Measured scan of single mutants.
Amino acid sequence: DIEITTNGEEDAKRVIKELQKRNLEYHIEVHGNQWVIKVR
């Protein structure tokens, strides 16, 4: 598993777009303004 910590929603959406392009499965956890994306 890979864990990507982003700085808020805009940053997270940019990362998610890339993950979707590669058809990767991911899970999002929001901790305040930090979005942690866990990639399987």
Rank of each mutant, 00 (worst) to 15 (best):
D1K: 07
D1F: 15
D1M: 14
D1E: 13
D1N: 12
I2Y: 15
I2L: 13
I2G: 04
I2P: 03
I2C: 14
I2N: 04
I2W: 15
E3Y: 15
E3K: 09
E3R: 12
E3P: 02
I4M: 04
I4W: 08
I4E: 01
T5D: 03
T5K: 11
T5A: 07
T6W: 02
T6H: 02
T6E: 02
T6G: 13
T6N: 02
T6F: 11
N7M: 13
N7S: 11
N7Y: 15
N7T: 10
N7P: 04
N7V: 11
G8Q: 08
G8V: 08
G8T: 15
G8M: 06
G8R: 11
E9I: 13
E9V: 11
E9G: 06
E9N: 04
E9Y: 14
E9L: 13
E9W: 15
E9S: 08
E10T: 08
E10I: 08
D11P: 05
D11M: 13
D11Q: 14
D11R: 07
D11W: 12
D11T: 09
A12R: 03
A12Q: 02
A12M: 13
A12T: 06
A12P: 01
K13E: 07
K13H: 10
K13L: 14
R14T: 07
R14V: 10
R14K: 12
R14D: 06
R14S: 06
V15S: 01
V15C: 11
V15G: 01
V15W: 08
I16A: 05
I16P: 00
K17I: 12
K17S: 11
K17W: 04
K17A: 14
K17G: 09
K17D: 10
E18A: 10
E18H: 08
E18K: 04
E18L: 09
L19V: 03
L19S: 01
L19P: 00
L19Y: 01
L19G: 00
Q20K: 11
Q20D: 10
K21E: 13
K21I: 09
K21S: 12
K21M: 11
K21Y: 07
K21F: 07
R22C: 15
R22I: 05
R22E: 04
R22M: 12
R22D: 04
R22K: 10
N23T: 03
N23P: 01
N23D: 07
N23G: 15
N23W: 04
N23H: 12
N23I: 02
L24V: 11
L24R: 05
L24M: 09
L24Y: 07
E25L: 09
E25V: 10
E25S: 11
E25T: 10
E25N: 08
E25K: 10
E25R: 09
E25H: 14
E25P: 07
E25F: 08
Y26Q: 00
Y26H: 02
Y26R: 00
Y26K: 00
Y26W: 07
Y26G: 03
Y26M: 04
I28V: 13
I28Y: 05
I28P: 00
I28M: 05
I28K: 00
I28D: 00
I28L: 08
E29P: 00
E29H: 05
E29A: 05
V30E: 03
V30F: 08
V30M: 08
V30G: 02
V30Y: 08
V30L: 05
H31P: 00
H31V: 13
H31R: 14
G32N: 10
G32P: 02
N33L: 05
N33W: 04
N33E: 10
N33C: 07
N33Y: 05
N33T: 06
Q34A: 05
Q34W: 08
Q34R: 12
W35P: 04
W35A: 06
W35L: 14
W35K: 07
W35Y: 08
W35Q: 08
W35D: 03
V36E: 04
V36N: 02
V36G: 01
I37E: 02
I37Y: 00
I37G: 01
K38L: 10
K38R: 10
K38Q: 09
V39M: 03
V39P: 00
V39I: 13
V39N: 00
V39Q: 00
V39F: 05
R40E: 11
R40T: 14
R40N: 11
